[in-house]
């Protein structure tokens, strides 16, 4: 009887460990693989961020997720990172589709948009088309095509070759104070329009 009772308690401890570990890893976005950085308490047109990134003020779930997916990120006074994993219809961004990314002037001294795969790494291709940034668009309005092959018109391009399901990170360096105070007012977020998928319009 005593042995049976001890085994029941042992099973409870083992199950509790598994539940605690699994729930923590899941809620912090550390498990399973492939979950991304499109989370946080700031949501500007589907572009998500947590302005506590890089600071002790972040909650433990944010801290754990950033440690995994945004290690060595700067605090918001220096740079703000916004991530989006879906297009304007809410569908997951996929390598098989072609998208038009467009925007205007950004409320920061410098900006870039970079594509990352499901493991938060640059996609394994040699296209040399990993991002677009402020340097290429000095007149404010800008647009680029996101596709696995270079667009025929020779315009700005971000290659999604080898990315699988991916997300985009908008970096805003030296953000305007207005952005930090009221991101939804200060930032007109870039649009992500899906143009076609797998050859179909």
């Amino acid at each position: 009887m005593m042995v049976r009772r001890a085994l029941i308690y042992l099973a409870a401890i083992v199950t509790g460990c598994a539940l605690g570990l699994g729930s923590a890893l899941y809620m912090a976005g550390l498990w399973p693989e492939g979950r991304n950085m499109a989370f946080g308490n700031v949501d500007v047109g589907g572009w998500r961020s947590d302005f506590a990134v890089g600071s002790k003020a972040a909650d433990p779930y944010t801290r754990a997720r950033v440690a995994r997916h945004g290690l060595l990120a700067l605090a918001k006074s220096e740079a703000v990172y916004l991530t989006r994993a879906t297009d304007e219809t809410g569908a997951r961004l996929r390598e098989a589709c072609t998208y038009r990314l467009s925007g205007g002037a950004m409320p920061a001294e410098w900006w870039s948009v970079t594509l990352y795969d499901g493991k938060s790494m640059l996609p394994a291709n040699t296209d040399g088309a990993l991002s677009v940034n402020a340097q290429g668009f000095p007149n404010g309005a800008w647009q680029a095509v996101i596709a696995p092959t270079r667009p025929a018109n020779g315009g700005a391009w971000i290659s999604s070759k080898g990315a699988g399901d991916f997300d985009l990170t908008l970096r805003l360096y030296i953000p305007n104070p207005a952005l930090l105070a009221s991101p939804n007012t200060a930032l007109t977020p870039p649009r992500i329009e899906r143009l076609s998928c797998g050859g179909a319009a």
Partner: peptide
């Protein structure tokens, strides 16, 4: 008793995992 132990252990491991994750990852 076993149910209470399970919940306490789960909550403790949950909190410990979150607390330790940044240091382990770094």
């Amino acid at each position: 008793g076993p149910l209470a132990v399970l919940l306490l252990v789960a909550a403790g491991v949950h909190a410990l995992t979150l607390h330790r994750a940044p240091a382990v990852i770094m």
